[in-house]
Design a protein around this nucleic acid. Structure first.
Lengths: 148, 148
DNA sequence: ACTATATAGAACCAATGCAGTCCTATTTAG
DNA sequence: CTAAATAGGACTGCATTGGTTCTATATAGT
């Protein structure tokens, strides 16, 4: 398992579609029709992505959504984060010790490192990359430099 | 989000505990008591881990569980896989196209690569590593060689 | 042989979270 | 002024998960 939510999956597909024509403005109905996903669901996702500042919107007739940044400046991590919130594999990985195991739980610090590795992996892939038919192998090297 | 299940978290804590004394045999009650997790829950997890061949068991009086392999030979990916099943971030990542987007979904192949990167990251960390107080930074380099 | 202590495996229940819908503003081009 | 859009909620049915319980089986010690 360890799967992302289905809605998050849709969101990435949406974003990749937008990334193929970065300037253009798409209405929710248009995207829903094109991707074969129900219109209300698409609309909801677009709102979420907007609030995360990944999209720009235009209201009224002829309005719609477009990318807020260049495709290469938006990562998969951004999209996942916008829909699912901050990445936290384990309960304790997001601070606030509501972990019943607290004392003697030596695995915590290690989970945070794994967490970080995952995040770096998702950040390494941009929408521009995803829009390409076949991505280059992901290079999560040099993790040390990115570590605090 | 993108979190592992709470039970999976428990499972790793259990396995790390066993990894600290690889030879020793622990009963479910013993582990439950030591970790502060309800006994039935611990028992269930141990059964799952057993079926995945990560543990060996001994029935009867004085019985219990112990690691089936050396701590360095069991990875976090093994433990996660034993509890949550095979890793598949997206619906389409696990074959069988029950993905409504099918046609024109160029993101699929790319998700599979991300998937793979994650798996490699989890496989790179063993129970022996987790048992250490502070893990070395994860090196998911040379991903190409591991790719088919 | 009998009993206490374990695991083996399955069935079961409650609750949380998620996918999806709907409704009511608000904005804007024509 | 109207039609076409987004903005932002609230709401609901369902699936998954966390957790329990029950029965069967194996084994060490007496």
């Amino acid at each position: 398992m360890l799967r992302i939510a289905k809605l998050t999956d849709y969101a990435t597909v949406l974003m990749v579609r937008l990334a193929r024509e970065p300037g253009r403005c798409f209405s929710a109905a248009q995207l829903a029709d094109e991707l074969g996903v129900p219109q209300p669901t698409v609309a909801k996702l677009l709102k979420h992505l907007l609030r995360a500042h990944l999209l720009a919107s235009a209201r009224g007739v002829g309005g719609g959504y477009s990318l807020a940044m260049a495709p290469h400046a938006i990562s998969v991590a951004d999209v996942v984060g916008a829909i699912e919130g901050p990445l936290a594999l384990t309960e304790c990985a997001r601070g606030k010790g509501n972990c019943s195991l607290e004392r003697g739980c030596a695995t915590r610090a290690n989970w945070q490192l794994i967490n970080r590795a995952l995040q770096v992996a998702l950040q390494a892939v941009s929408l521009a990359d995803m829009a390409r038919p076949q991505l280059q192998p992901i290079h999560v090297q040099a993790l040390q430099e990115k570590m605090p």
